[in-house]
């Protein structure tokens, strides 16, 4: 447990000093909202469209962070250091997922209000409690699958390319579940009820991929 918290602290400290991923992800989200405004020629959106724009943007922004997640480990021999330390692979998996989760949370603190100001028609505040639940479940899925995809791609020649190619299809169920779950929250006449079956799907996705990642992560480390 202390290994996990040490690794998370290291990642957060590094991000605080270098500011490589989080500002880029946040800026990307805001630019995407501007692009969507011109692309679909609407100044305010609600319902399905709002949920879709929000989740496509967040997923694409998260891929930017996913691509960089293990770069420090790879470039600065961090993998060797972790293998030498008495830390097992699952601790690294947990730490990296938590770091990515933290990055996503910070990005969303910027991106969600930005979305509400720039594009969202209905008020954000009444929808917020439900949206937070969807965000939490979806972010866990993105964090786990993102860590896995990042660890798979980091040793390849075309890292960013592989992350995007592999991450997008893998995250389709998250996009689907999260967008369907948040659509009634963002509808024009005030938020509707939170659809439980989509939250259930997101939860199932998180659970299955957490188990799969736990089972295979060992093999991505031992060299």
């Amino acid at each position: 447990m202390s290994a996990v918290s040490t690794l998370v602290r290291k990642d957060l400290l590094l991000e605080l000093r270098k500011r490589e991923s989080v500002p880029a992800m946040a800026l990307f989200s805001l630019s995407a909202f501007v692009l969507f405004h011109f692309g679909i020629n609407r100044s305010s959106v609600d319902g399905d469209l709002a949920a879709g724009l929000l989740w496509v943007t967040l997923l694409l922004a998260s891929l930017l962070g996913v691509g960089r997640l293990f770069v420090a480990e790879r470039d600065e021999e961090g993998f060797d250091a972790i293998r030498l330390a008495p830390v097992d692979a699952s601790a690294l998996l947990a730490a990296k997922s938590l770091s990515l989760l933290a990055f996503l949370a910070i990005v969303e603190v910027v991106a969600i209000p930005g979305f509400a100001i720039l594009l969202l028609g209905p008020a954000l505040l009444p929808a917020l409690p439900g949206l937070l639940a969807v965000l939490a479940l979806a972010d866990i899925g993105i964090a786990v699958v993102g860590t896995l995809a990042s660890a798979l791609a980091v040793q390849t020649r075309a890292r960013e390319l592989i992350v995007a190619l592999m991450g997008l299809p893998l995250l389709v169920p998250v996009a689907l579940g999260a967008a369907r779950a948040s659509a009634p929250l963002l509808q024009a006449g005030g938020p509707g009820a939170l659809p439980g079956r989509w939250l259930g799907l997101l939860g199932l996705y998180d659970l299955v991929f957490a188990l799969v990642a736990y089972a295979v992560f060992d093999y991505l480390l031992d060299d």
């Binding site: 896995l148 798979l152 799969v212 991505l220 060299d223």
Partner: peptide, 30 residues
């Protein structure tokens, strides 16, 4: 693309296998 972007044959096999397992789990969920 993933498989052939990895040079070392042993690592190539290992990473491709991990991908195959992850994708296999993805099929029913999707």
């Amino acid at each position: 693309p993933l498989r052939f972007a990895i040079e070392d044959p042993e690592r190539q096999a290992r990473y491709a296998a991990v991908f195959a397992v992850v994708a296999g789990a993805f099929v029913p969920l999707n």
